[in-house]
């Protein structure tokens, strides 16, 4: 993976099988988020090959598998002017998901009472919960979570852990990028370290 002449990631070999959760650790700027966005098919590798849910990362096949991927970045992707319900309803309408699923997902993350609140007036923790509600609603097979426990309280942390376990137990997979080693290592089948854009 390159930005101009600079390699952000190089010589990456990572195999995540169904039923596995992989922890990825590393310092700031090591390339963790870039790796996650690459796995989410949001970036195209400059060289090499990769397969996500059977789709070649470098070909147009990757567009087909995107709805099966659940990606939560460290910056919430909510529209601030829209309510939490509207944010999720927009995703639901684009993916042919019933509005009932929007309401039940918000309720599952403890946001039933805040569904008509605009995202811009919600705390960062609430926005993170809403992001996880989106993941619950879309029921992805491959979870890609960037700092999954950041800005969450105890209940929400348990909820995220439960989401990862359920996905993995159902035959899905997860990659968790985090600074919180202890918490993630409890969930992970194995862990890797990323340093200077290379996995070890």
């Amino acid at each position: 993976m390159r930005a101009g002449a600079t390699h952000i990631l190089r010589d990456i070999t990572l195999n995540v099988e169904p039923g596995e959760a992989v922890g990825v650790f590393g310092t700031n700027g090591a390339g963790k988020t870039t790796l996650l966005r690459l796995l989410a098919t949001l970036l195209k590798p400059a060289t090499g090959t990769g397969t996500i849910l059977g789709a070649d990362l470098s070909s147009d096949e990757r567009y087909e598998v995107r709805p099966r991927i659940g990606y939560v970045g460290h910056v919430p992707g909510l529209y601030p002017e829209m309510t939490l319900d509207e944010n999720l309803s927009f995703i639901a309408s684009a993916m042919a998901i019933d509005h009932d699923a929007v309401l039940s997902s918000l309720a599952a993350v403890g946001l039933a009472g805040a569904s008509d609140r605009r995202a811009e007036v919600c705390s960062h923790g609430m926005q993170r919960r809403a992001e996880f509600a989106r993941i619950l609603m879309t029921e992805p097979e491959f979870l890609l979570l960037d700092e999954p426990h950041s800005a969450l309280d105890g209940n929400a942390v348990d909820l995220v852990d439960d989401l990862v376990r359920r996905t993995v137990n159902a035959g899905g997979a997860a990659v968790l990028v985090s600074h919180e080693r202890t918490r993630v290592e409890k969930l992970a089948t194995y862990s890797v370290e990323i340093k200077g854009g290379t996995l070890s």
Binding site: A40, E64, A94
Partner: peptide
């Protein structure tokens, strides 16, 4: 529209 918002839209599979 932020990068994070564009990412969310892209992953819905919207053409």
């Amino acid at each position: 529209e932020s990068q994070a918002q564009r990412d969310v839209v892209a992953l819905t599979g919207i053409d």
